[in-house]
Design a protein around this nucleic acid. Structure first.
Length: 991
RNA sequence: AGGACCAUAGCUCAGUUGGUUAGAGCGCCACGUUGACAUCGUGGAGGUCGGCGGUUCAAAUCCGCCUGGUCCUACCA
């Protein structure tokens, strides 16, 4: 073995071998265990979140596989509609200077398929680097024919059940992608906005008495008005107003209800009149208390319009430009005014209420023009400025504005024909499944989040006006009548449409999450009743981030229950977000992204800086990021290997909490790998070619197990139990910590050291040496199995060399991957050995302490004595003299029968036992007195505390006897210790 | 506005049903290359467990309030 651990040399070859040997496919004889990978974007690349999540899934999968379960980790990728279309659209624009419209639908989707072909392997290669033991033979893609079939089937069946419908509704519209998006894809962000106040003149110049009162009913304002005042943040939508609404309880406007007012924009001769109505929606306390109702451009207004039969006038096109189609403004305005008076005017689609001069303008440009025009006309509400001049009232305030999560564009509520899933009936069983425990969230508090969302669910808009995705299986005849079926042929057959009647398929595609929602059963072959479906569904656990519970988890539960009658998974393990060391979200624009592959392979500083700032548009920001990067990683990032990265993730994986990725811990766990590596070197150096008492025929295997052997085996059982339990509880931090502590603090720090006196002592018996060698290799072999789910590469590499020596062959297989998971054996727990080793460690540490306190060179041989102990102490001394001498670097250590005969010595207590190191010629009198004074003081404080406690009658009366006794024992120990220290102090002072 | 979660050593975090002298890793200080390992060893310093109040014989742990932070949901034209 090489002297230092070099992960890059072992990782790639092992993955290849595992994959080639088919170790990832289900093969266990036990119960099925299955996990579905949350399918990453097929053209994406692996980020820290993936790496974290995949580590958890792989650890679970490997663990279950070793436990003998018939284990499937199903892998696949997602077509990721918007994200992929956007990417390829940009690429085509950059490389060919063409838009997707220039290419046309077929050519453009061909480009996406080409891009998938070209880059689709990237993320799967990265998954392999992480060691993910997914079954590649079952890899799926959401746009595969087979998966498409499942998607179609679900759509058709939901439609037939009346759970999918098509209709004209107000939806969130992304003007950049020119598609509807779901509520979830909208991010509300606070922005600086303005609110304008405008006067809507009353029809026919009518006036009324406007009276404002304070809380006590005293009149604070009384004036005659010929207008009603409204406030708006979106003046350009005034053109589509259908009414002005006031609260039914608002006395100020009571006289106006039922009358008409005029929208103060557009050519004067065609200004529209709209009714003043009452509705519960307006809040009299806010603004003027009167709200303009624009049903086609605002969700709240839409609801008011529905309740009051107010017409909806669409003002914009798909790009959120002011419409430039339909009837002329004059005709439109005339029709709309008739509607306002209650006349039936039929369809409003052709009505375009955008005045000629605004047609075709961007919505924000139109907004500016409307504000200018209204203000110029003197119809802005004014307020005096500091100089007493009347100025238009424009409030600058924070607004929550909706943005598309992908495009970053301002989302427009937009009236269009879309397909929807009626969720109410689907949600009920989905809620029940979590309530009754069929599905369990880990940690549990995410269930509340789930319930809250599920109980207030809106119908799900599933159609997208994109080109990349599953085309909606619906066909239209020339009259626009819709036929849903699995194919055009089926549509004709089902609905009896003659072959000569032309049908055209719906242009839209389905929301990506609609297909992702079928992931657990679609990947297993549904709608066919395949053996895989039978065996592996429902899956055992879904490992996912909380940010995706609504998008994905909830919809999977609904759709899976509906179509399979089963839950998709029994547990949902929810992990946190991977953040940077400061707790910030990692993002390209912040320039704080770490690439898991760079952490594995290392990256030099300049390349890292280039990576973070390469495509950055603003040079100033790029410089700041470069500076921060140089500061954080002055030497770049060195190679750590996959195992160290995985171990870091696991150690930080505490439930339901974001992780701040700590590169210091990554270094630490790389060192841990190195420690394991070197410990193994030691074991191999001492065991290879030697008699380990593990011959296959059992001949000549007589062994004698030392105290240390029995102890480490005992500790191993406990570690096995701890790690197993932690895994069951998804406490990967505890599992990794238990392993770390056992390997480093027990096996390396103590057991290996204790093995040296046996192996290197010519007088040690062959049986004893055999016993120690056997324990060395068998414990290591077991610990490698324990480590394997967490650190697959290094464990496999070392196991290959250790397993033959351990003689614990578990079958023909040559890989750790198919070895059994260690099972704790309580009969091998040896409490007496543990107590003896604790004693041994105590004495050694005591001597080391004395050495450090007296500033004695670590290598200087010392003489030590033990006294005041009991028969056990004597027995232990006699049995372990060799070990004490070696580990504490002693010339000799002996029993002193009469403590009064002790020479002046540094003293430490181990239980009742006193450990003495004679101090002749070693002592610095003043320093020692100071130290002792400090130590006595410390003891006094502790004694004080306990005495107070024991002096408290209610403590003695009410606390359990065991607790009281424990305190008494403690007091005893402390008092003895203190007395000793005082004696010591007096003796030294007397020198 | 409603809700969730978090606050423990300089940093990143453990701390199970209340009873420990409150732990680990990294960092820091001192000493040390004996034959697995300087990606190491030995020893050490460092914490009024965010604040206040309560329950209890006993609170980092349970309850209430407050402060600070993160996030989610819903939003007022």
């Amino acid at each position: 073995m090489d002297k230092t651990y070099q992960p890059e040399q072992i990782e790639n070859r092992w993955y290849q071998r595992w994959e080639d040997n088919g170790h990832f496919a289900p093969s266990g004889k036990g119960d099925p265990f299955s996990i579905m990978i949350p399918p990453p974007n097929v053209t994406g690349s692996l980020h820290m979140g993936h790496a974290f999540q995949d580590t958890i899934m792989d650890t679970l999968t490997r663990w279950k596989r070793m436990q003998g379960n018939n284990t499937l980790w199903q892998v696949g990728t997602d077509h990721a509609g918007i994200a992929t279309q956007m990417l390829v659209e940009r690429k085509v624009a950059a490389e060919e200077g063409k838009s997707r419209h220039d290419l046309g639908r077929d050519a453009f989707t061909d480009r996406i398929w080409e891009w998938k072909q070209e880059s689709g392997g990237h993320i799967t290669r990265q998954l392999r680097r992480m060691g993910a033991s997914v079954d590649w033979s079952r890899e799926r893609f959401t746009m595969d024919d087979g998966f498409y079939k499942a998607v179609q089937e679900v759509f058709v069946q939901l439609f037939d059940k009346g759970l999918i419908y098509r209709g004209k509704r107000l939806v969130n519209w992304d003007p950049t992608f020119e598609t509807a998006i779901s509520d979830l894809e909208v991010e509300n962000t606070e922005v600086d906005g303005q609110m304008w106040h405008f006067k809507y003149p009353l029809a026919g110049g009518e006036t009324y008495e406007y009276i404002e009162k304070d809380a006590d009913g005293n009149v604070t304002l009384r004036e005659t008005r010929d207008y009603i005042s409204i406030a708006t943040t979106r003046p350009e939508t005034m053109l589509g107003d259908g009414a002005v609404a006031v609260s039914p309880d608002d006395e100020r406007y009571a006289p106006l209800v039922g009358k008409l007012c005029e929208i103060p924009v557009g050519p004067k001769e065609h200004r529209r009149l709209i009714p003043i109505i009452t509705d519960e929606y307006p809040d009299p306390e806010f603004g003027s208390g009167a709200v303009k109702i624009t049903g086609a451009h605002d969700f709240n207004d839409y609801a008011v319009a529905q309740r009051n039969a107010i017409p909806l006038y669409n003002l914009m096109d798909r790009k959120a430009h002011m419409r430039n189609d339909g009837l002329s403004y004059a005709e439109s305005a005339a029709l709309a005014s008739r509607a306002a008076r209650g006349e039936d005017i039929g369809s409003v689609d052709e009505i375009n209420l955008v005045p000629t001069e605004l047609r075709g303008l961007d919505r924000f440009a139109a907004r500016r023009q409307v504000v200018e025009a209204v203000t110029a006309e003197g119809l802005a509400v004014t307020t005096p400025d500091e100089a007493g001049q009347e100025q238009p009232l424009v409030e600058h305030k924070k607004l929550m504005q909706p943005f598309g999560d992908r495009s970053g564009d301002v989302i427009e509520p937009y009236l269009t024909d879309q397909w929807f899933v009626a969720v109410e009936d689907l949600a009920k069983p989905a809620i029940a499944a979590v309530e009754n425990g069929d599905i369990e969230f880990v940690p549990k508090n995410y269930e509340n989040m789930y319930f809250a969302w599920m109980r207030d669910l809106q119908d799900w808009c599933i159609s997208r006006q994109l080109w990349w995705g599953h085309r909606i299986p619906a066909w239209y005849d020339t009259e626009g009548k819709v036929y849903v079926a699995r194919s055009e042929a089926e549509a004709r057959e089902r609905y009896g449409i003659a072959a000569d009647v032309p049908l055209s398929q719906d242009e839209d595609v389905l929301d990506t999450w609609f297909s992702s929602g079928l992931w657990t059963f679609g990947t297993l072959g549904w709608p066919e009743q395949t053996p895989a479906l039978e065996t592996f569904h429902p899956t055992n656990v879904l490992v996912t981030g909380f940010d995706i519970i609504f998008f994905w988890v909830a919809r999977m539960i609904m759709l899976t229950l509906e179509f399979t009658g089963e839950v998709p998974f029994k547990q949902v393990y929810v992990h946190g977000l991977v953040r940077d060391g400061q707790g910030n979200k990692m993002s390209k624009s912040k320039g704080n992204v770490l690439d898991p592959i760079d952490l594995i392979d290392g990256i030099d500083l300049e390349t890292l800086v280039e990576k973070r700032t390469g495509n950055m548009m603003q040079p100033q920001k790029a410089r700041a990021i470069a500076k921060a990067t140089r500061q954080e990683f002055p030497q770049g990032i060195e190679a750590h290997g996959t195992d160290a990265l995985r171990f870091t993730f696991l150690s930080q994986a505490t439930t339901g909490r974001d992780i701040k990725f700590d590169i210091g811990r990554l270094d630490g766990y790389r060192n841990f790998c190195n420690k394991l590596w070197n410990a193994s070197r030691y074991v191999l150096m001492n065991a290879e070619g030697q008699d380990c008492g593990t011959s296959p025929d059992g001949q000549g295997d007589e062994v004698e197990l030392s105290l240390a052997d029995r102890w480490i085996v005992s500790r191993l059982q406990q570690t096995e139990a701890q790690v197993t339990r932690a895994m069951q509880e998804y406490r990967f931090d505890h599992a990794s910590q238990a392993l770390y502590e056992f390997i480093w603090n027990e096996y390396c720090d103590w057991y290996l050291e204790l093995s040296k006196p046996v192996l290197w002592d010519d007088e040690a018996s062959a049986q004893a040496q055999r016993g120690t060698r056997r324990t060395l290799v068998r414990v290591l072999e077991t610990v490698l199995r324990l480590a394997h789910p967490m650190m697959p590469y290094i464990s496999e590499e070392i196991w290959q060399r250790v397993a033959p020596l351990a003689g614990t062959s578990h079958g023909e297989e040559d890989s750790l991957m198919v070895q059994p998971w260690p099972q704790a054996d309580d009969s091998r727990i040896d409490e007496a050995a543990e107590r003896d080793i604790e004693w041994l460690k105590g004495v050694i540490v005591a001597i080391r302490n004395i050495r450090a306190e007296l500033n004695i060179a670590p290598g200087k041989p010392l003489t030590a004595m033990l006294t005041k102990g009991d028969a056990d102490d004597r027995r232990r001394l006699d049995a372990n003299r060799r070990f004490l001498a070696k580990l504490a670097k002693l010339e000799s250590i002996d029993w002193l029968a009469d403590a009064d005969q002790a020479p002046l010595a540094a003293t430490q207590l181990v239980g009742d036992l006193e450990v003495l190191v004679p101090m002749a010629g070693l002592i610095d009198k003043e320093a020692e007195l100071t130290r002792l004074a400090k130590e006595i003081d410390k003891q006094d404080k502790l004694i004080d505390g306990i005495e107070k406690k024991l002096g408290n009658e209610s403590f003695v009366a009410k606390a359990p006897e065991a607790v009281v006794q424990k305190e008494r024992d403690k007091l005893d120990d402390l008092s003895t210790n203190r007395r000793l220290l005082v004696e010591q102090r007096d003796r030294i002072a007397a020198l």
